[in-house]
Design a protein around this nucleic acid. Structure first.
Lengths: 213, 213
DNA sequence: CGGTTGTTTGAGTTCAGTCAAACCGGGTGG
DNA sequence: CCACCCGGTTTGACTGAACTCAAACAACCG
């Protein structure tokens, strides 16, 4: 097992690789993304410490998307061989990993709904709701405030919008007193209303402890 | 194990259920979908005979989306208990199921890219490319022609477009001699050009036999 | 032969994109 | 210590892809 460090923007896993190890985020923030030939980018997930964004490499030879750091980030790498030994010995672990990839997929599906059928305001409200609950679940948002090292352009690429439009929607939400969002720090001021604006329903997160919010 | 029959539009798995069994499509066609409170719909996957759209229910208590029949369809239901016995006895099966859910997720991610960053022409071209390769893989498109029991409104709900716009794009593709699409039968006439128009790259399908096309 | 479902066409609208410039704060080097 | 730069945010003006609404058309079916 090796640990490596990354700076903002650096690839942790490269699209097209054939990894022989899985990575575990130890500290920092990462996202998964795909690029179209002409440079358009779609971000498909945000990852916090404790996540293993790369579990699929255990079964799928070639990686079909990249993982990049959003800020100084440390990741541990565990060889597939060792993973197999571990899961062979502790079948519970195997099911936990599988479950993890299933929740991951559930979140991507919800994003698909957003990019397909929600308008810009709904998408952004929904994303904030999701972040807050997920971050609460892992202790990254003890109050209704959390740190999110994403630029407005990153948010745009996650939600299929332009950075300009993200900016305008955020201003609307600020004007309406729903949130504050400065300096990579997000605070949710009116949770209930934000949920409504985002047509948010937390079922898809499959959280065991229904985090109160 | 029980077998049930469904008509077009009927739910095979209902959103919000707590299933105690997994379903296997035996014949027909199905899709997975979510509805927003006001009725907007997002289709998240199409399924052919042999697929198990519901594998996630093995690990996630409550279903976060529906599965519905696109035409007269038969599905077999296998209890979770039996699934556990099977996978316990044949660990290879367990990994095959996991792998299947991973590919499923990879396809959803690619759809996310489409709905987020591809325009209408690209989305539709991409979907046709994907369908052709997947259907070839399971013998449903021996030539470059296949049956797809989806209305233009279904396609619209899969791609985050309006039915009217889908119609207009299809006319463009027909005019350019890329495809024909009548009576639920799709033929790809210019595979190479269609791939270009859809910025299609088959990596994400993780097909073992690189299906020639 | 009506009724129903799906496709096609036309006209007008809008949400979000593009382009371009101004602004702002933090870091750096002269 | 300040001028400059750079990444990120904000603002304004204009554009356009895709949507909505509404009606016509076509095919199928009982």
């Amino acid at each position: 097992m090796t640990v490596r460090s990354y700076v903002r923007g650096q690839d942790i896993v490269r699209d097209g690789d054939r990894p022989s190890e899985c990575c575990l985020i130890l500290a920092g923030f990462a996202f998964r993304y795909k690029l179209l030939p002409d440079g358009r980018r779609q971000i498909m997930a945000f990852h916090t410490p404790g996540d293993m964004p790369d579990l699929q490499s255990l079964h799928l030879q070639v990686t079909d998307h990249g993982v990049a750091a959003m800020m100084p980030t440390q990741a541990a790498f565990i060889s597939h061989k060792k993973m197999q030994v571990l899961t062979g010995r502790f079948p519970g672990l195997l099911h936990a990993f599988w479950r993890d990839t299933l929740i991951d997929a559930a979140i991507v599906r919800e994003w698909l709904v957003g990019n397909g059928r929600r308008d810009a305001h709904e998408r952004i409200a929904h994303l904030i709701c999701e972040m807050l609950l997920r971050f609460k679940g892992v202790g990254l948002a003890p109050s209704d405030t959390f740190n999110l090292p994403a630029t407005q352009a990153d948010i745009a690429d996650a939600l299929g919008l332009s950075n300009v439009h993200v900016n305008r929607v955020l201003q609307d939400f600020r004007r309406d007193g729903l949130i504050t969002w400065t300096n990579y720090t997000v605070s949710v001021l009116k949770w209930d209303e934000l949920q409504v604006r985002g047509t948010f329903d937390a079922t898809y997160l499959h959280q065991v402890h229904k985090a109160a919010a």
